[in-house]
Amino acid sequence: MTTTASHVHVDEWLTLRQVADRLAVALVTVSTWWRDNEFDRPPPGEPDNIWYRAPYGSATGYDRRLGGRLVNPAALDTFVPPSQRSRACVAAAGRLIADEAAAFVGCSVPHLNRAAQLGDLLFTVVEGVRAFDRADLETWRTTPTPTGRPRRSLDSERNKAVRPGPLLSFSDAWRLLGYADRASITRLVQRGRLPVVFDERGRKRVNRSDVEALVAEREARMAKREARA
């Protein structure tokens, strides 16, 4: 065994297959995490020099008798998958990532990112992503634009009436879905979830029926979550 002594008996450690089953991910994914020392990383918000060996022992080890590569089950209590680590680290720092910040101030994510790029909105970088402080967001929201006009609120845009007809613009589709920003429609199109059609003027549109199907799907997911709560 290549780890220090553990309060969890070695025979109780998990193989990578058991970790994959417990986390509901592919074995190759867990193997990559083990190889990249993801299980050995400290929890989000903890300094890099904090090593959570005590009181559980090392996070990973190797024992040929038990099948080779192993993971201490206690390490899974604080494990955050790499795809979620940036968001978790930003949250641990008491800040918001771009989509959360945009919802907080009531604007679109592209508009928020443009303000950050231009230096109008302060931010820090945590785990490679922009992180915004709520106080800075409040200041930016209440500061007039260079023209002296108040900043356009995403809420006022969202509350505009959806125009009738079988075809919807991306903006109308966004309002009908109630998503956080208009860019969400573009992402749905890119992922093939929302087919694009063209109207008589050659403009990109989406079918109202497809958008309403996504609305029904979203409401069904929310109902399931509420039922489990």
Rank of each mutant, 00 (worst) to 15 (best):
T3F: 06
T4W: 01
A5K: 13
V10G: 02
V10S: 10
V10T: 06
L14A: 07
T15C: 08
R17W: 11
Q18Y: 02
D21Y: 02
D21M: 04
L27P: 00
V28E: 14
T32I: 00
T32H: 05
W34L: 06
D36G: 01
N37P: 00
E38W: 00
R41A: 15
P44E: 11
P47D: 11
N49C: 11
I50P: 00
I50L: 14
W51E: 14
A54G: 08
Y56L: 05
G68E: 01
R69H: 08
V71S: 03
P73I: 02
P73W: 01
L76A: 05
L76F: 11
T78E: 10
F79P: 02
F79T: 02
S83Q: 09
Q84Y: 03
A88Q: 05
A91C: 03
A93T: 02
A93H: 09
L96R: 06
L96C: 10
L96D: 07
L96E: 06
I97R: 14
E100G: 08
A101T: 12
A101D: 03
A103S: 15
F104K: 03
L112D: 10
N113P: 01
A116C: 13
L118H: 08
G119Q: 09
G119W: 06
G119I: 12
G119P: 08
L121P: 05
L122C: 11
L122V: 13
V125P: 03
V125Y: 08
V126C: 08
E127A: 12
G128A: 13
V129I: 15
F132T: 09
F132E: 05
L137W: 07
T139A: 15
T142V: 05
R149S: 15
R151Y: 02
L154M: 05
D155C: 01
E157R: 01
A161V: 07
R163W: 00
P166V: 01
F170A: 14
D172M: 07
A173F: 07
W174D: 13
G178V: 09
Y179Q: 11
D181T: 15
A183Q: 12
S184Q: 11
S184M: 14
I185R: 08
I185F: 07
V189M: 12
R191I: 09
R191V: 09
G192V: 14
P195S: 10
V196C: 10
V197Q: 13
E200S: 13
E200M: 01
R201T: 12
R201N: 11
R205M: 15
V211Y: 00
L214M: 09
E217T: 05
R218Q: 10
A220W: 00
R221H: 04
